[in-house]
């Protein structure tokens, strides 16, 4: 009898122990850029902390912000910071939130491997993506029409590229809007005159990444984890977590895990850029 009681007691204690250890139950929604990273992070986290259940879904940064505003997600992951009008909406709804940078990502501009062009300035990129430059001849390449590939409008990558490379101008109407980053890589690899942009983690040998200059052609920098880390590569962006201050207790331990040395080592392994 005593034995049974002690077993039951220890079970209860164990159960309580699990609760005390970080048992996180939450939903994460938003950026497709963050999706593979956060999925990997949540998998390893759940393996270490039994009883945790983290649901990660994509859809685009804007979708994540809309969801946290509507209260259907606990954490919004984003590949761009919250826009002013989104901040105002959160403010109007009386929702105080915390913004955390969890990792960084570099966007690389890719072309077909047969393309002779190896580097472009920001001004040239702006001309190409807004549709003012239409032939590779105009930037020193061969006589070949440029085919511009972009992500769909719901993508945070689309917004970030528009803001930081196109100087807030709209993409040209001839740009091909692809439903996924993988589709851009596939299309650029099989289209001779193609140009597109993808996160560093998506770079493959079937496409060529361009060196980019943000100082009107003085220095051209190659996109790589190293160059993004030492801040010489210009098209780098932080990846964010947004969560309500009121749910800090609920999600805090997962966020801390992400920022820990172990979480950041996964960041590097998955092809993103860890915070220092």
């Amino acid at each position: 009898m005593k034995k049974v009681v002690s077993i039951v007691m220890s079970l209860v204690m164990a159960g309580a122990g699990v609760v005390n250890a970080q048992r996180v139950v939450c939903k994460i929604k938003g950026s497709d850029t963050c999706l593979p990273l956060i999925q990997k992070e949540s998998e390893t986290y759940q393996k270490k902390n039994a009883g945790s259940s983290i649901m990660v879904t994509g859809g685009g940064s804007g979708v994540g912000f809309a969801a946290i505003l509507a209260g259907t997600t606990d954490i919004a992951m984003a590949s761009r910071s919250m826009k002013m009008d989104e901040k105002l909406k959160m403010n109007e709804a009386g929702k105080a939130y915390t913004e955390k940078v969890i990792a960084k990502d570099a966007l690389s501009v890719i072309v077909n491997p047969t393309n002779k062009i190896g580097q472009l300035t920001r001004e040239q990129l702006e001309g190409i993506f807004t549709g003012k430059i239409t032939n590779w001849k105009q930037v020193g390449g061969e006589d070949l029409a440029i085919v511009v590939y972009s992500r769909e409008t719901s993508s945070g990558t689309y917004e970030f590229f528009k803001e930081h490379v196109l100087n807030k101008k709209n993409f040209g109407p001839k740009a091909l809007l692809m439903p996924a980053t993988g589709a851009i890589v596939q299309s650029v690899s099989q289209t001779k005159g193609a140009i597109g942009y993808v996160g560093l983690a998506y770079l493959e040998k079937t496409v060529k990444a361009l060196k980019v200059s943000y100082d009107k052609g003085k220095t051209f920098v190659e996109p790589s984890v190293e160059n993004a880390k030492n801040k010489t590569y210009p098209i780098t962006r932080p990846l964010y977590f947004y969560y309500l201050k009121s749910s800090e207790k609920q999600v805090g331990s997962f966020v801390n895990y992400l920022l820990s040395a172990e979480g950041q080592s996964i960041v590097l392994k998955e092809g993103y850029i860890p915070l220092q």
Partner: peptide, 9 residues
């Protein structure tokens, strides 16, 4: 969605 390129021209 996957094969027509989705350029609104």
């Amino acid at each position: 969605l996957m094969v027509t390129g989705n350029a609104s021209t």
